[in-house]
Each structure stands twice: as structure tokens, then as C-alpha cells.
Computed example of a mutant assay.
Amino acid sequence: MRDVVELQFDLTPPTREQMEQLVADLSEEDRHLLLEHGEEAPFCGVFLHERREGFFTCRLCGLPLFKAVAKFESGTGWPSFTAPAADNHLRRVRDTRYRMLRTEIVCARCDAHQGHVFPDGPPPTGERFCINSGSLEFTPKGQPLPDKLGRGGPEGAPAR
């Protein structure tokens, strides 16, 4: 089985109709987090202590964002990762909200807010991707990756 970084994922943004369908399934809190760049409170996210093998995918569109093996305990209260599953699956955005300069991380396909990246992570990257649990879904190893846009292809492939 090939690794997700070897698979080709369609990064074409969802159509207006697809986006409406994806957003319709979200709670008000989820919409705030994913679409309005919200942040969940520390130490309360469902994936903070997730330890199984698999992939963390975008809660909105299903794009694989992080391998479980890249997850580490940062002590910050949010799930933290050393690197994305594929560099082109996340986009970095300058964030000056709250009178500080940070780098926001959004899904490269649907622009859903994921969290922020900081330059204080462990080797090998030295980066800490600090992600909201509510921005993610988890696919355990051996289960098919989500295909929320109905495009087929690698999303239906089992997670490694």
C-alpha cells in the first residue's frame, strides 16, 4: 500500500454546491471554527490524546492533512504535529488577529481553518503545527479515507 504522500489528491476547491452541502452538515460551533477562523479552548479537543495509527483529515472536505506518526505531545492543549502528510495539502496565511503575528494553517483544498504553525517544534522540522481537534477527523489505519466530494481516487484508499 502506498503512503499518502505518494498518492495524488485532487486539490481543486469544492464547487459552490459541494461547499453548501459540506457546510450544511456543520454545527454553528463547527462553522465558527472552520469558516470564521475560530479557536477551541485548550485541553478539551477530542483528538488531544488520540494515539492510534492512521490519518487526520480535514473535517470539512476530507483531505488528508497529518499522519498520526507526526503527532506529538506539546503540552499546549491542542493536538500538535511535526509536519503535514503532504506539503501541498496545507496553505500558510499571515495572521495578525489579536495584535500578534502568527502563521495560520488552512486546508489547501477548501480553505477551512485548521490552526497555526510555530517555529518551536521538535526535530526533524523544528515546526509545531498546533491544530484544533474540531478542524479534524480521524481515519484509523486500514479504514478507507473519506471521499466527501465524491471524486473517487485516493480518498477511498485505506489509511496506512
Rank of each mutant, 00 (worst) to 15 (best):
F43A: 14
P123V: 10
R128N: 03
S135E: 05
V23C: 08
L90G: 00
G62S: 02
D3V: 10
G156P: 00
D10Y: 10
L136K: 01
G77E: 03
P158K: 10
W78N: 02
F43I: 11
F81H: 02
R128F: 05
C58I: 10
P64Q: 06
G38A: 14
K141S: 06
A24V: 12
T57R: 06
T76C: 15
N88V: 09
V46M: 13
F66N: 00
G45P: 07
H89N: 09
Y98T: 13
P14S: 13
F55Q: 11
G121R: 04
L35N: 08
F118V: 08
G156V: 03
L90I: 09
R91S: 12
R51S: 15
H32P: 10
R2V: 09
L22V: 04
K71D: 05
G115N: 01
I105H: 00
M19V: 11
A41F: 14
G153V: 04
A112N: 04
E155Y: 04
D30F: 04
L145Q: 01
V69W: 04
D87R: 14
G121I: 05
R92D: 13
T76N: 11
N88H: 15
S74Q: 12
P158H: 09
V106A: 09
P154N: 06
A159E: 04
F72A: 00
P13Q: 08
R92G: 12
L35K: 09
A157W: 08
I131T: 00
L26T: 07
R102S: 05
P79M: 05
R102H: 07
A86K: 12
I131L: 00
K67C: 03
G54H: 01
F47D: 03
C58N: 07
G38D: 12
A157I: 06
P154E: 00
K141Y: 05
